[in-house]
Design a protein around this nucleic acid. Structure first.
Length: 426
RNA sequence: GGAGGGUUGGCUGAGUGGUUGAAAGCGGCGGUCUUGAAAACCGUUGACGGGGCGACCCGUCCGGGGGUUCGAAUCCCUCACCCUCCGCCA
């Protein structure tokens, strides 16, 4: 969330940001927030005055009692003050709750370099890499290639669970495992610390990273108030919730391979065929904690790391700079990487890399100072970033379609072959 | 799932209704002594919010949240976490 003081001092900048992000409902929350904040600040002043009076008097009563003098009149008098303090405290609590709720509804501000736009059509292609492969035959979509050899079995997934839960088999499963090792090894080389994280998180974690209350319907909720993670970002980023990090030790770079679960309610049609959109998928995620000064360089570095993987796999791709209207609630700046899908003749989003600036850190209460928790002085907020490297299903789709042969076999990219243990899927 | 015990400042650990934001020790910081260091001794040392140019002043904080009371670290309720024992279990 944004800093309350910043909102108080720059309400117009926040209003502009909400309009640019196409989130009209948030305007109402902002206006409520400003009203509640104003009332709360007046109430605080009154409350502190009465609390001071009560505190002084109760000390005085203590003195009288110790001396054996009569404290009854003063105690009766203070009864009224105490009642007033209680009334003000109750009102203060309800205002605090309202302020907290409204604050969660206010989106992050877009960075100055983000283009204004109302929808995905206004995103800007900032980079293209590779050339579309040519075939001596009509290239097939990945679901045909995969189904022919049983590498991906969508019907089995439907029987076992339901639509959107693919089953990988044989060399298809081997490809999944190979990609995991390939991605994680390259990220280890790039300085990322590997984690294995819980696949369920509590409501506090989901709130801190911005899934709640904004995207509640998109997560699977299980018993005991837990949610299946829609991305390991949620688990990783909460690692440092309520902590003060040592500024000199930053940046912290983490990666984790995990299953991800998304309800994707309302999705249908050709966009969801095959592996294009599923409810459970694997992903290797990157998360960074940096100083505010370093976060935009870190965004570029993280993006370059993801792009290097696509290049090592030999997959043609383009990088999009997301416009204000297509960016989402928590992000200040976001790039999407899309791999070319020759069998479908369309771009597939395989990675999304974002800088949240201090938006998550404020919710997380993750701060930094020289010396960390034991250090001295006022702690400052850190910036958080995350990105995928990469999402498996669409990467697998792009590999199958890009490297397909007419006989239905698929060449394994040279850099990936050692991880898969073979150079040809057949 | 059942029974019991616990959660206090950077750490250890006192404190069961009235100048307790909190003893003591450790650690940290400053000083004395010393060529320097160590040891010893002396002093000092929590966080957050608000106010004032400032010496300072006010408020909140003893796991979280409520309650009782003129007054709560201390009493009551509730939640979370940790420990011990029993049960169950890959």
């Amino acid at each position: 969330m944004l800093d309350l003081r910043f909102i108080r001092e720059n309400p117009d900048a926040v209003r502009r940001a909400i309009r640019a992000k196409q989130l009209p409902d948030a305007l109402e929350s902002l206006e409520q927030l400003l009203l509640a904040d104003e009332e709360y600040r007046l109430l605080r002043r009154d409350l502190e005055e009465k609390q001071a009076l009560r505190n002084a008097s109760s000390k005085h009563i203590g003195e009288l009692k110790r001396k054996g003098e009569d404290a009854e009149p003063l105690m009766r008098e203070m009864g009224e003050v105490a009642a007033e303090v209680k009334r003000l405290e109750e009102r203060g609590r309800s205002l605090e709750a309202r302020i907290g709720e409204c604050l969660l509804e206010v989106p992050n501000l877009p960075h100055a370099s983000v283009p204004y736009g109302e929808s995905e059509h206004d995103n800007v292609v900032v980079k293209e890499w590779g050339t579309a492969p040519s075939f001596g035959f009509e290239p097939r979509p990945h679901w045909e290639i995969a189904a022919a050899r049983g590498w991906v079995d969508l019907e089995a997934g439907v029987k076992i669970t339901g639509a959107g839960f693919p089953l990988f088999r044989g060399q298809g499963a081997r490809l999944v495992r190979g990609l995991e090792g390939f991605f994680l090894d390259r990220l280890a080389d790039a300085g990322y610390t590997e984690l294995v994280v819980p696949l369920m998180v509590n409501a506090a974690s989901a709130t801190a990273t911005g899934q709640l209350p904004d995207k509640e319907g998109q997560m699977y909720q299980v018993q005991d108030g837990y949610y299946l993670i829609p991305t390991s970002e949620v688990a990783i980023t909460n690692l440092h919730r309520d902590e003060i990090l040592d500024t000199d030790a930053l940046p912290f770079l983490y990666t984790a391979y995990s299953a991800c679960f998304r309800r994707e309610a309302g999705s249908y049609g050709k966009d969801v065929r095959g592996l294009n959109r599923v409810h459970q998928f694997d992903k290797v995620e990157m998360v960074a904690f940096t100083t505010p000064e370093a976060s935009y360089d870190a965004l570029e570095a993280m993006t370059a790391t993801s792009e290097a993987m696509l290049e090592a796999l030999g997959l043609g791709y383009r990088r999009l700079l997301m416009c204000t209207g297509d960016m989402g609630f928590t992000q200040a700046k976001k790039y999407d990487l899309e791999a070319w899908s020759p069998g479908q003749r369309r771009w597939l989003e395989v990675s999304s890399i974002s800088n949240m600036e201090a938006f998550q850190a404020t919710r997380l209460h993750t701060r930094m100072r020289a010396g960390g928790a034991a250090g001295k002085g006022k702690p400052g907020l850190v910036h958080t970033l995350n990105g995928s490297a990469l999402a498996f299903p669409r990467t697998i789709a792009a590999i199958l379609e890009t490297y397909q042969n007419e006989d239905g076999s698929v060449r394994v990219p040279a850099a990936l072959a050692p991880y898969v243990g073979r150079e040809l899927l057949s």
